[in-house]
Nucleic acid binder design. Structure first.
Ligand code: NAD
Ligand code: NAD
Lengths: 208, 208
DNA sequence: TAAAGTTTGTGATTGAGTTCTCAATCACCA
DNA sequence: TGGTGATTGAGAACTCAATCACAAACTTTA
């Protein structure tokens, strides 16, 4: 296919396709059609084919997609074919959960540095990672870490973001309920869990 | 304004507006224009006005929106003007963080029931809530709890969802990386944290 | 009271993303 | 080798959401 701007929504769905493909491979399925993937992920077959077509032609007409080959392609597109290291700031309730979570590995992601400002936490070793003082954030520069995760209170989020950017971070996953002001070259994705939950009652039947 | 279907995206933004309004009120601001709100939330003024206009005319030309009044309106629209109780299933790393989080209160949400299947956790009392056996999920029916939060491993998510639906739950926030099959009357929102994080490397500069 | 300056609410417009459709491609089999 | 059936890839059509732009509504000031 020819030159095209890739919709953000397409990028958002790519990891889902990867998850579906991994699921297929676990079950020993070698080839999967867009229709079968659709049943697994509940994304329309046309959507899947169009999304993939932005990046090239990976399928075989009459057969579908080779699960292993397509997974590799998607990993390449997402740049998770080589491992990515991430720095976590804020080892509170949420930060601890993230650090202990083994599921990031499937996407080539690893939390390999942790920072906090609580003297009671600094120096501790959790999951083989030593908790460092947040003032040492600048040491990230020498560690080839380009991703940051913010799990500090909202009041500290902006200053942490500033420090991360100064330390060479180029992508931030932010859990604090706060809009982060960063240079354009830095990509921020915010997950505000409370806000997502707050949206559920809207869909409840009126009677309740 | 005339009859209109409300875009899902609009509903998604309503809690943001509420957050902005609360921020304003904390600072003693009585009236706020769409332009000022825009600077706070980084959503365009036109977007804010259009979103609000789906539900009525809440502002005053030349002045803006009364923060207290608009906050009340939005709470009403989202149905969080009266408290909503939620049941949490899975008191692992993530579930514990959620249970301890005080920020849900701002949206009238409260986790008032917790379930797990680990005998070592059942019976414990955390944050004044007693952890119950997951087999007792049906008791929710008598408690007027309409919201559920799933924080169990992916392999258990569907069965937990089924049990929640059977117990009368009508809205589910799911953290398991799995598509949940539920009746149409039940609204599911899934947050797959790993998948969101997996999207960040895509935006990194090619050199890295 | 009148004129100047804001800001809302919304119809019209633009733009982005999804779905439709079908010719082209490939595996399989007789 | 040619026919059958399945499935892709991508242009066209469509749907839905975001932005524009301005009349109407309000405040302030003199
Ligand atoms: N826990 C949840 O379920 C949940 C839900 C929604 C949103 N959030 C948001 O996620 C963020 C973290 O939540 P949490 O529950 O883990 O909070 P927490 O209070 O448990 O942990 C915050 C951690 O950040 C550290 N910290 C504070 N200021 C710091 C600074 N300037 N530099 C470095 N570290 C600092 C603290 O020492 C603590 O370890 C908050 O912004 C919260 O609003 C959490
Ligand atoms: N922790 C994270 O940062 C993180 C990140 C992304 C996704 N997730 C997802 O969130 C979910 C929970 O993650 P976690 O880290 O808290 O896992 P966890 O293993 O720490 O906790 C899971 C909890 O669920 C309980 N449980 C298991 N089966 C159950 C069942 N059938 N009924 C009731 N309870 C049951 C376990 O006893 C345990 O307490 C998982 O699906 C995980 O993939 C977590």
């Amino acid at each position: 296919m020819r030159y095209h701007k890739i919709p953000d929504e397409t990028v958002r769905r790519l990891p889902m396709y990867l998850r579906g493909l991994l699921l297929c491979r676990e079950q020993g399925v070698r080839d999967v059609s867009s229709r079968k993937l659709s049943e697994l992920l509940h994304i329309s077959p046309a959507q899947i084919r169009k999304d993939l077509s932005y990046f090239g032609a990976f399928g075989t007409p009459g057969v579908g997609y080779d699960t292993a080959k397509l997974a590799k392609q998607i990993r390449g597109i997402l740049k998770i074919d080589t491992p990515n290291k991430a720095a976590l700031v804020g080892l509170g309730n949420l930060g601890s959960a993230l650090l202990k979570y083994p599921g990031f590995g499937a996407y080539g992601l690893q939390i390999s540095a942790v920072f906090d400002n609580d003297p009671g936490k600094i120096g501790k070793i959790v999951k083989k990672v030593k908790v460092e003082d947040v003032s040492k954030l600048s040491t990230l520069k020498n560690k080839n870490i380009k991703l940051g995760i913010i799990a500090v209170p909202a009041s500290a989020a902006q200053s942490v973001a500033d420090a991360l950017v100064k330390a060479g971070i180029r992508g931030i996953l932010n859990f604090a309920p706060f809009y982060l002001d960063v240079p354009k070259k830095v990509k921020v994705i915010t997950i505000d869990i409370a806000m997502v939950l707050a949206r559920l009652p809207y869909y409840l039947p009126a009677s309740a």
